[in-house]
Design a protein around this nucleic acid. Sequence first.
DNA 1: GTGAGCATACCGACCGGTCGGTAGGGTGGG
DNA 2: CCCACCCTACCGACCGGTCGGTATGCTCAC
Lengths: 199, 199
Amino acid sequence: MPSATEQKIIDAAVRLFASQGYDATSVQEIVTAAEVTKGALYHYFRAKDDLLFEIYRLLITAQSADMDRIIGLGLSSADTVREILVSLVVSTAERVDETAVFVREMHRLDEARMTEFRAERRRYHETFLAVIEKGQADGEFSSAVPADTVVRIALGVVNQLPVWYRPDGPKSPSVLAGEIADFVLAGLSGRGKDPERAA
Amino acid sequence: MPSATEQKIIDAAVRLFASQGYDATSVQEIVTAAEVTKGALYHYFRAKDDLLFEIYRLLITAQSADMDRIIGLGLSSADTVREILVSLVVSTAERVDETAVFVREMHRLDEARMTEFRAERRRYHETFLAVIEKGQADGEFSSAVPADTVVRIALGVVNQLPVWYRPDGPKSPSVLAGEIADFVLAGLSGRGKDPERAA
DNA sequence: GTGAGCATACCGACCGGTCGGTAGGGTGGG
DNA sequence: CCCACCCTACCGACCGGTCGGTATGCTCAC
Protein backbone atom coordinates (compact mmCIF):
# COMPACT_ATOMS: atom_id res chain seq x y z
CA MET A 1 0.00 0.00 0.00
CA PRO A 2 1.40 3.37 -0.98
CA SER A 3 1.95 6.03 1.67
CA ALA A 4 0.13 9.36 1.42
CA THR A 5 3.30 11.05 0.15
CA GLU A 6 3.82 8.39 -2.49
CA GLN A 7 0.23 8.77 -3.64
CA LYS A 8 0.49 12.56 -3.89
CA ILE A 9 3.58 12.17 -6.05
CA ILE A 10 1.90 9.72 -8.42
CA ASP A 11 -1.24 11.82 -8.69
CA ALA A 12 0.77 14.91 -9.55
CA ALA A 13 2.89 12.98 -12.05
CA VAL A 14 -0.16 11.59 -13.82
CA ARG A 15 -1.75 15.00 -14.10
CA LEU A 16 1.40 16.67 -15.41
CA PHE A 17 2.44 13.86 -17.76
CA ALA A 18 -1.07 13.83 -19.24
CA SER A 19 -1.16 17.54 -19.91
CA GLN A 20 2.46 18.20 -20.94
CA GLY A 21 4.04 14.87 -21.74
CA TYR A 22 6.70 12.94 -19.87
CA ASP A 23 9.84 14.64 -21.13
CA ALA A 24 8.36 18.10 -20.96
CA THR A 25 7.64 17.61 -17.26
CA SER A 26 10.59 18.15 -14.94
CA VAL A 27 11.04 16.35 -11.66
CA GLN A 28 11.00 19.74 -10.00
CA GLU A 29 7.54 20.47 -11.40
CA ILE A 30 6.25 17.16 -10.06
CA VAL A 31 7.50 17.68 -6.52
CA THR A 32 6.23 21.27 -6.48
CA ALA A 33 2.77 20.19 -7.65
CA ALA A 34 2.75 17.34 -5.13
CA GLU A 35 3.90 19.71 -2.38
CA VAL A 36 6.84 17.53 -1.45
CA THR A 37 10.58 17.81 -2.10
CA LYS A 38 12.95 16.08 -4.43
CA GLY A 39 14.37 14.13 -1.53
CA ALA A 40 10.95 12.64 -0.86
CA LEU A 41 10.47 11.63 -4.49
CA TYR A 42 13.84 9.95 -4.76
CA HIS A 43 13.22 8.26 -1.46
CA TYR A 44 10.25 6.39 -2.95
CA PHE A 45 11.29 6.12 -6.60
CA ARG A 46 14.67 5.24 -7.93
CA ALA A 47 14.30 7.20 -11.15
CA LYS A 48 11.85 9.32 -13.09
CA ASP A 49 10.70 6.45 -15.24
CA ASP A 50 9.74 4.41 -12.22
CA LEU A 51 6.81 6.82 -12.08
CA LEU A 52 5.77 5.82 -15.59
CA PHE A 53 6.14 2.17 -14.75
CA GLU A 54 3.99 2.53 -11.67
CA ILE A 55 1.25 4.34 -13.60
CA TYR A 56 1.13 1.58 -16.21
CA ARG A 57 1.17 -1.19 -13.65
CA LEU A 58 -1.84 0.19 -11.79
CA LEU A 59 -3.77 0.56 -15.02
CA ILE A 60 -3.01 -2.78 -16.58
CA THR A 61 -3.51 -4.97 -13.54
CA ALA A 62 -6.95 -3.40 -12.98
CA GLN A 63 -8.00 -3.99 -16.58
CA SER A 64 -6.77 -7.55 -16.72
CA ALA A 65 -8.56 -8.43 -13.49
CA ASP A 66 -11.75 -6.90 -14.86
CA MET A 67 -11.68 -8.95 -18.02
CA ASP A 68 -10.91 -12.20 -16.22
CA ARG A 69 -13.80 -11.59 -13.86
CA ILE A 70 -16.25 -11.03 -16.74
CA ILE A 71 -15.14 -14.09 -18.65
CA GLY A 72 -15.60 -16.10 -15.47
CA LEU A 73 -19.30 -15.24 -15.47
CA GLY A 74 -19.93 -17.67 -18.32
CA LEU A 75 -22.23 -15.41 -20.35
CA SER A 76 -23.02 -15.79 -24.05
CA SER A 77 -20.37 -14.50 -26.46
CA ALA A 78 -22.36 -11.40 -27.27
CA ASP A 79 -22.97 -10.57 -23.63
CA THR A 80 -19.35 -11.27 -22.77
CA VAL A 81 -18.15 -8.92 -25.48
CA ARG A 82 -20.64 -6.30 -24.38
CA GLU A 83 -19.62 -6.54 -20.74
CA ILE A 84 -15.93 -6.39 -21.54
CA LEU A 85 -16.34 -3.32 -23.70
CA VAL A 86 -18.64 -1.50 -21.31
CA SER A 87 -16.39 -2.17 -18.36
CA LEU A 88 -13.31 -1.18 -20.34
CA VAL A 89 -14.81 2.06 -21.65
CA VAL A 90 -16.18 3.07 -18.28
CA SER A 91 -12.99 2.34 -16.39
CA THR A 92 -10.95 4.10 -19.07
CA ALA A 93 -13.19 7.14 -18.91
CA GLU A 94 -12.60 7.23 -15.17
CA ARG A 95 -8.87 7.27 -15.75
CA VAL A 96 -8.39 9.29 -18.90
CA ASP A 97 -5.18 10.85 -17.66
CA GLU A 98 -3.52 7.54 -16.87
CA THR A 99 -4.62 6.14 -20.21
CA ALA A 100 -3.40 9.19 -22.11
CA VAL A 101 0.02 8.86 -20.50
CA PHE A 102 0.08 5.16 -21.15
CA VAL A 103 -0.79 5.47 -24.84
CA ARG A 104 1.54 8.36 -25.53
CA GLU A 105 4.62 7.40 -23.53
CA MET A 106 4.62 3.62 -23.51
CA HIS A 107 7.56 3.42 -25.89
CA ARG A 108 9.76 5.15 -23.35
CA LEU A 109 10.03 2.10 -21.13
CA ASP A 110 13.37 0.34 -21.04
CA GLU A 111 13.85 -2.99 -22.78
CA ALA A 112 13.08 -5.24 -19.83
CA ARG A 113 9.88 -3.51 -18.80
CA MET A 114 8.82 -3.14 -22.40
CA THR A 115 9.03 -6.89 -22.86
CA GLU A 116 7.05 -7.49 -19.71
CA PHE A 117 4.32 -5.12 -20.86
CA ARG A 118 4.12 -6.52 -24.33
CA ALA A 119 3.55 -9.94 -22.81
CA GLU A 120 0.75 -8.65 -20.58
CA ARG A 121 -0.79 -6.75 -23.47
CA ARG A 122 -0.58 -9.78 -25.68
CA ARG A 123 -2.31 -11.92 -23.07
CA TYR A 124 -5.12 -9.37 -22.81
CA HIS A 125 -5.40 -9.17 -26.58
CA GLU A 126 -5.55 -12.92 -27.05
CA THR A 127 -8.06 -13.49 -24.30
CA PHE A 128 -10.41 -11.08 -26.02
CA LEU A 129 -9.62 -12.64 -29.38
CA ALA A 130 -10.56 -16.06 -28.08
CA VAL A 131 -13.96 -14.79 -26.97
CA ILE A 132 -14.73 -13.46 -30.43
CA GLU A 133 -13.40 -16.52 -32.22
CA LYS A 134 -15.58 -18.71 -30.07
CA GLY A 135 -18.63 -16.60 -30.95
CA GLN A 136 -17.78 -16.94 -34.63
CA ALA A 137 -17.28 -20.71 -34.38
CA ASP A 138 -20.62 -21.06 -32.63
CA GLY A 139 -22.33 -19.06 -35.34
CA GLU A 140 -23.34 -16.40 -32.84
CA PHE A 141 -21.18 -13.87 -34.69
CA SER A 142 -20.58 -13.38 -38.40
CA SER A 143 -17.15 -14.34 -39.71
CA ALA A 144 -17.23 -11.68 -42.41
CA VAL A 145 -14.47 -9.71 -40.70
CA PRO A 146 -11.52 -11.65 -39.21
CA ALA A 147 -11.51 -11.76 -35.42
CA ASP A 148 -8.07 -10.19 -35.05
CA THR A 149 -9.14 -7.11 -36.97
CA VAL A 150 -12.23 -6.80 -34.79
CA VAL A 151 -10.08 -6.95 -31.68
CA ARG A 152 -7.74 -4.30 -33.04
CA ILE A 153 -10.65 -2.01 -33.82
CA ALA A 154 -12.36 -2.50 -30.48
CA LEU A 155 -9.26 -1.98 -28.36
CA GLY A 156 -8.11 0.87 -30.59
CA VAL A 157 -11.27 2.78 -29.83
CA VAL A 158 -10.61 2.54 -26.13
CA ASN A 159 -7.04 3.77 -26.50
CA GLN A 160 -8.29 6.75 -28.44
CA LEU A 161 -10.79 7.71 -25.76
CA PRO A 162 -8.46 10.21 -24.03
CA VAL A 163 -8.22 12.12 -27.30
CA TRP A 164 -11.86 13.10 -27.45
CA TYR A 165 -13.66 12.06 -24.28
CA ARG A 166 -14.38 14.91 -21.87
CA PRO A 167 -15.81 14.20 -18.41
CA ASP A 168 -17.98 17.30 -18.71
CA GLY A 169 -19.22 16.31 -22.16
CA PRO A 170 -22.86 15.61 -23.01
CA LYS A 171 -22.62 11.83 -22.76
CA SER A 172 -21.97 9.93 -19.56
CA PRO A 173 -19.34 7.18 -19.68
CA SER A 174 -21.94 4.44 -19.45
CA VAL A 175 -24.05 5.86 -22.30
CA LEU A 176 -20.94 6.13 -24.41
CA ALA A 177 -19.89 2.63 -23.47
CA GLY A 178 -23.31 1.34 -24.51
CA GLU A 179 -23.07 3.02 -27.89
CA ILE A 180 -19.61 1.66 -28.55
CA ALA A 181 -20.66 -1.84 -27.52
CA ASP A 182 -23.77 -1.59 -29.72
CA PHE A 183 -21.65 -0.63 -32.70
CA VAL A 184 -19.12 -3.38 -32.25
CA LEU A 185 -21.83 -5.98 -31.75
CA ALA A 186 -23.66 -4.73 -34.84
CA GLY A 187 -20.42 -5.12 -36.75
CA LEU A 188 -20.12 -8.67 -35.45
CA SER A 189 -23.67 -9.55 -36.45
CA GLY A 190 -22.72 -9.53 -40.12
CA ARG A 191 -24.70 -8.00 -43.00
CA GLY A 192 -21.58 -6.36 -44.41
CA LYS A 193 -21.18 -5.55 -48.05
CA ASP A 194 -20.50 -9.11 -49.25
CA PRO A 195 -23.46 -11.24 -48.20
CA GLU A 196 -22.05 -14.33 -49.87
CA ARG A 197 -19.17 -14.28 -47.39
CA ALA A 198 -21.41 -14.79 -44.34
CA ALA A 199 -21.30 -18.17 -42.58
CA MET B 1 9.62 22.58 -53.32
CA PRO B 2 11.99 21.44 -50.60
CA SER B 3 15.69 21.09 -51.41
CA ALA B 4 17.42 17.73 -51.04
CA THR B 5 18.99 18.85 -47.77
CA GLU B 6 15.65 19.98 -46.38
CA GLN B 7 14.08 16.66 -47.34
CA LYS B 8 16.85 14.67 -45.68
CA ILE B 9 16.33 16.62 -42.48
CA ILE B 10 12.57 16.02 -42.45
CA ASP B 11 12.98 12.33 -43.23
CA ALA B 12 15.45 11.87 -40.41
CA ALA B 13 13.27 13.86 -38.01
CA VAL B 14 10.19 11.78 -38.82
CA ARG B 15 12.08 8.55 -38.28
CA LEU B 16 13.61 9.64 -34.98
CA PHE B 17 10.51 11.33 -33.59
CA ALA B 18 8.48 8.21 -34.37
CA SER B 19 10.85 5.85 -32.63
CA GLN B 20 11.95 7.96 -29.65
CA GLY B 21 9.50 10.83 -29.33
CA TYR B 22 10.02 14.53 -29.96
CA ASP B 23 11.61 15.61 -26.70
CA ALA B 24 13.82 12.56 -26.46
CA THR B 25 15.34 13.36 -29.84
CA SER B 26 18.04 16.04 -29.81
CA VAL B 27 18.71 18.37 -32.70
CA GLN B 28 22.19 16.91 -32.81
CA GLU B 29 20.79 13.41 -33.38
CA ILE B 30 18.65 14.67 -36.25
CA VAL B 31 21.48 16.36 -38.07
CA THR B 32 23.78 13.38 -37.56
CA ALA B 33 21.15 10.99 -38.95
CA ALA B 34 20.46 13.32 -41.87
CA GLU B 35 24.19 13.69 -42.52
CA VAL B 36 24.07 17.46 -42.37
CA THR B 37 25.14 19.96 -39.73
CA LYS B 38 23.31 22.06 -37.22
CA GLY B 39 23.95 25.13 -39.29
CA ALA B 40 22.13 23.58 -42.22
CA LEU B 41 19.12 22.69 -40.09
CA TYR B 42 18.81 26.16 -38.62
CA HIS B 43 19.24 27.61 -42.07
CA TYR B 44 16.02 25.95 -43.21
CA PHE B 45 14.04 25.81 -39.97
CA ARG B 46 13.70 28.54 -37.39
CA ALA B 47 13.23 26.18 -34.46
CA LYS B 48 12.90 22.54 -33.58
CA ASP B 49 9.13 22.62 -33.55
CA ASP B 50 9.00 23.93 -37.09
CA LEU B 51 9.92 20.35 -37.96
CA LEU B 52 6.83 19.06 -36.18
CA PHE B 53 4.67 21.65 -37.87
CA GLU B 54 5.98 20.70 -41.28
CA ILE B 55 5.34 17.00 -40.68
CA TYR B 56 1.74 17.67 -39.68
CA ARG B 57 1.10 20.03 -42.55
CA LEU B 58 2.18 17.49 -45.14
CA LEU B 59 -0.01 14.82 -43.58
CA ILE B 60 -3.19 16.81 -43.06
CA THR B 61 -3.32 18.57 -46.41
CA ALA B 62 -3.00 15.23 -48.20
CA GLN B 63 -5.79 13.64 -46.15
CA SER B 64 -8.21 16.52 -46.53
CA ALA B 65 -7.69 16.66 -50.28
CA ASP B 66 -8.35 12.92 -50.46
CA MET B 67 -11.64 13.13 -48.65
CA ASP B 68 -12.89 16.10 -50.66
CA ARG B 69 -12.07 14.27 -53.87
CA ILE B 70 -14.04 11.19 -52.80
CA ILE B 71 -17.08 13.14 -51.71
CA GLY B 72 -17.00 14.91 -55.06
CA LEU B 73 -17.56 11.58 -56.81
CA GLY B 74 -21.21 11.56 -55.73
CA LEU B 75 -21.37 7.90 -54.72
CA SER B 76 -23.97 6.37 -52.42
CA SER B 77 -23.47 6.92 -48.70
CA ALA B 78 -22.20 3.39 -48.18
CA ASP B 79 -19.73 3.61 -51.05
CA THR B 80 -18.59 7.05 -49.94
CA VAL B 81 -17.91 5.79 -46.42
CA ARG B 82 -16.12 2.77 -47.83
CA GLU B 83 -13.95 4.84 -50.14
CA ILE B 84 -13.06 7.35 -47.43
CA LEU B 85 -12.06 4.62 -45.01
CA VAL B 86 -10.09 2.60 -47.52
CA SER B 87 -8.21 5.62 -48.78
CA LEU B 88 -7.55 6.83 -45.24
CA VAL B 89 -6.29 3.46 -44.01
CA VAL B 90 -4.09 2.88 -47.04
CA SER B 91 -2.55 6.35 -46.97
CA THR B 92 -2.03 6.10 -43.22
CA ALA B 93 -0.36 2.72 -43.59
CA GLU B 94 2.01 4.29 -46.10
CA ARG B 95 2.95 6.94 -43.58
CA VAL B 96 2.87 5.20 -40.23
CA ASP B 97 5.80 7.17 -38.89
CA GLU B 98 4.29 10.55 -39.69
CA THR B 99 0.98 9.46 -38.20
CA ALA B 100 2.61 8.13 -35.05
CA VAL B 101 4.41 11.42 -34.53
CA PHE B 102 1.25 13.36 -35.24
CA VAL B 103 -0.89 11.39 -32.79
CA ARG B 104 1.66 11.37 -30.00
CA GLU B 105 3.07 14.88 -30.18
CA MET B 106 0.23 16.99 -31.46
CA HIS B 107 -0.28 18.67 -28.10
CA ARG B 108 3.19 20.18 -28.28
CA LEU B 109 2.22 22.77 -30.89
CA ASP B 110 2.06 26.36 -29.73
CA GLU B 111 -1.29 28.07 -29.22
CA ALA B 112 -1.62 29.60 -32.68
CA ARG B 113 -0.77 26.47 -34.62
CA MET B 114 -2.86 24.36 -32.28
CA THR B 115 -5.91 26.47 -33.05
CA GLU B 116 -5.27 26.22 -36.75
CA PHE B 117 -5.01 22.45 -36.56
CA ARG B 118 -8.06 22.00 -34.41
CA ALA B 119 -10.04 23.91 -37.01
CA GLU B 120 -8.73 21.72 -39.84
CA ARG B 121 -9.41 18.59 -37.81
CA ARG B 122 -12.88 19.73 -36.95
CA ARG B 123 -13.64 20.39 -40.59
CA TYR B 124 -12.50 16.89 -41.49
CA HIS B 125 -14.52 15.37 -38.67
CA GLU B 126 -17.70 17.22 -39.59
CA THR B 127 -17.45 16.45 -43.26
CA PHE B 128 -17.32 12.77 -42.43
CA LEU B 129 -20.11 13.20 -39.90
CA ALA B 130 -22.34 14.80 -42.54
CA VAL B 131 -21.86 11.81 -44.85
CA ILE B 132 -23.00 9.40 -42.16
CA GLU B 133 -25.91 11.56 -41.04
CA LYS B 134 -27.13 11.78 -44.60
CA GLY B 135 -26.98 7.99 -44.91
CA GLN B 136 -29.00 7.67 -41.74
CA ALA B 137 -31.57 10.23 -42.86
CA ASP B 138 -31.99 8.40 -46.18
CA GLY B 139 -32.51 5.13 -44.35
CA GLU B 140 -29.41 3.67 -46.02
CA PHE B 141 -27.80 3.32 -42.57
CA SER B 142 -29.30 2.35 -39.24
CA SER B 143 -29.63 5.09 -36.66
CA ALA B 144 -29.11 2.69 -33.76
CA VAL B 145 -25.75 4.24 -32.92
CA PRO B 146 -25.42 8.06 -33.05
CA ALA B 147 -23.42 9.33 -36.00
CA ASP B 148 -20.89 11.22 -33.87
CA THR B 149 -19.95 8.06 -32.01
CA VAL B 150 -19.51 6.20 -35.29
CA VAL B 151 -17.19 8.94 -36.56
CA ARG B 152 -15.16 8.82 -33.36
CA ILE B 153 -14.80 5.07 -33.64
CA ALA B 154 -13.88 5.09 -37.32
CA LEU B 155 -11.30 7.86 -37.07
CA GLY B 156 -9.97 6.44 -33.81
CA VAL B 157 -9.12 3.20 -35.52
CA VAL B 158 -7.03 5.01 -38.09
CA ASN B 159 -5.14 6.95 -35.43
CA GLN B 160 -4.35 3.69 -33.68
CA LEU B 161 -2.94 2.10 -36.82
CA PRO B 162 0.68 3.03 -36.03
CA VAL B 163 0.41 1.12 -32.78
CA TRP B 164 -0.12 -2.27 -34.35
CA TYR B 165 0.26 -2.05 -38.12
CA ARG B 166 3.53 -3.44 -39.44
CA PRO B 167 4.46 -3.06 -43.12
CA ASP B 168 5.95 -6.54 -43.07
CA GLY B 169 2.86 -8.04 -41.43
CA PRO B 170 0.68 -10.72 -43.04
CA LYS B 171 -1.99 -8.33 -44.31
CA SER B 172 -1.45 -5.75 -47.02
CA PRO B 173 -2.77 -2.24 -46.36
CA SER B 174 -5.58 -2.65 -48.86
CA VAL B 175 -6.76 -5.96 -47.39
CA LEU B 176 -6.73 -4.38 -43.95
CA ALA B 177 -8.54 -1.31 -45.23
CA GLY B 178 -11.22 -3.56 -46.74
CA GLU B 179 -11.72 -5.38 -43.46
CA ILE B 180 -12.00 -2.20 -41.48
CA ALA B 181 -14.46 -0.71 -43.97
CA ASP B 182 -16.50 -3.93 -43.90
CA PHE B 183 -16.71 -3.80 -40.15
CA VAL B 184 -17.74 -0.16 -39.96
CA LEU B 185 -20.37 -0.63 -42.67
CA ALA B 186 -21.71 -3.71 -40.92
CA GLY B 187 -22.00 -1.61 -37.78
CA LEU B 188 -23.91 1.01 -39.75
CA SER B 189 -26.28 -1.55 -41.20
CA GLY B 190 -27.98 -1.98 -37.85
CA ARG B 191 -29.05 -5.21 -36.19
CA GLY B 192 -27.64 -4.12 -32.81
CA LYS B 193 -28.88 -5.38 -29.51
CA ASP B 194 -31.92 -3.13 -29.24
CA PRO B 195 -34.08 -3.74 -32.31
CA GLU B 196 -36.82 -1.43 -31.06
CA ARG B 197 -34.44 1.51 -31.39
CA ALA B 198 -34.10 1.18 -35.16
CA ALA B 199 -35.72 3.87 -37.33
C1' DG C 1 20.35 4.72 19.06
C1' DT C 2 18.90 3.77 14.83
C1' DG C 3 16.59 3.52 10.71
C1' DA C 4 12.64 5.39 7.88
C1' DG C 5 11.33 9.57 6.04
C1' DC C 6 12.30 13.39 4.48
C1' DA C 7 14.94 18.45 3.31
C1' DT C 8 18.55 21.16 0.92
C1' DA C 9 22.39 22.24 -1.64
C1' DC C 10 24.68 20.99 -5.36
C1' DC C 11 26.81 18.51 -9.65
C1' DG C 12 28.00 17.35 -14.31
C1' DA C 13 25.90 16.32 -18.65
C1' DC C 14 23.42 17.84 -22.17
C1' DC C 15 20.26 20.66 -24.88
C1' DG C 16 18.35 24.18 -28.12
C1' DG C 17 19.84 27.89 -30.28
C1' DT C 18 23.45 31.51 -31.90
C1' DC C 19 26.94 33.52 -34.39
C1' DG C 20 31.13 34.67 -36.90
C1' DG C 21 32.77 32.80 -40.70
C1' DT C 22 33.36 30.41 -45.49
C1' DA C 23 32.75 28.16 -50.10
C1' DG C 24 31.13 28.82 -54.45
C1' DG C 25 28.10 30.23 -58.05
C1' DG C 26 25.86 34.10 -60.33
C1' DT C 27 26.20 38.99 -62.28
C1' DG C 28 27.15 43.38 -64.03
C1' DG C 29 30.43 47.37 -64.89
C1' DG C 30 34.59 48.19 -67.28
C1' DC D 1 37.15 38.43 -70.57
C1' DC D 2 37.45 39.34 -65.75
C1' DC D 3 37.16 40.65 -61.35
C1' DA D 4 34.72 43.01 -57.56
C1' DC D 5 30.66 42.17 -55.25
C1' DC D 6 27.09 39.75 -53.27
C1' DC D 7 24.08 36.18 -51.78
C1' DT D 8 22.60 31.63 -50.65
C1' DA D 9 23.81 27.60 -48.38
C1' DC D 10 26.15 25.79 -45.00
C1' DC D 11 29.77 24.98 -41.02
C1' DG D 12 30.87 23.97 -36.11
C1' DA D 13 32.52 25.96 -31.80
C1' DC D 14 30.28 27.88 -28.23
C1' DC D 15 26.81 29.69 -24.58
C1' DG D 16 23.36 30.13 -20.99
C1' DG D 17 20.31 27.45 -18.81
C1' DT D 18 17.93 23.30 -17.34
C1' DC D 19 17.58 18.71 -16.05
C1' DG D 20 17.89 14.14 -13.62
C1' DG D 21 20.15 12.57 -10.05
C1' DT D 22 23.15 12.57 -5.59
C1' DA D 23 25.42 13.56 -1.13
C1' DT D 24 24.67 14.72 3.31
C1' DG D 25 22.37 15.59 7.30
C1' DC D 26 18.37 16.44 10.35
C1' DT D 27 14.39 14.54 13.04
C1' DC D 28 11.37 11.86 15.28
C1' DA D 29 8.92 7.42 16.23
C1' DC D 30 10.07 3.14 18.16
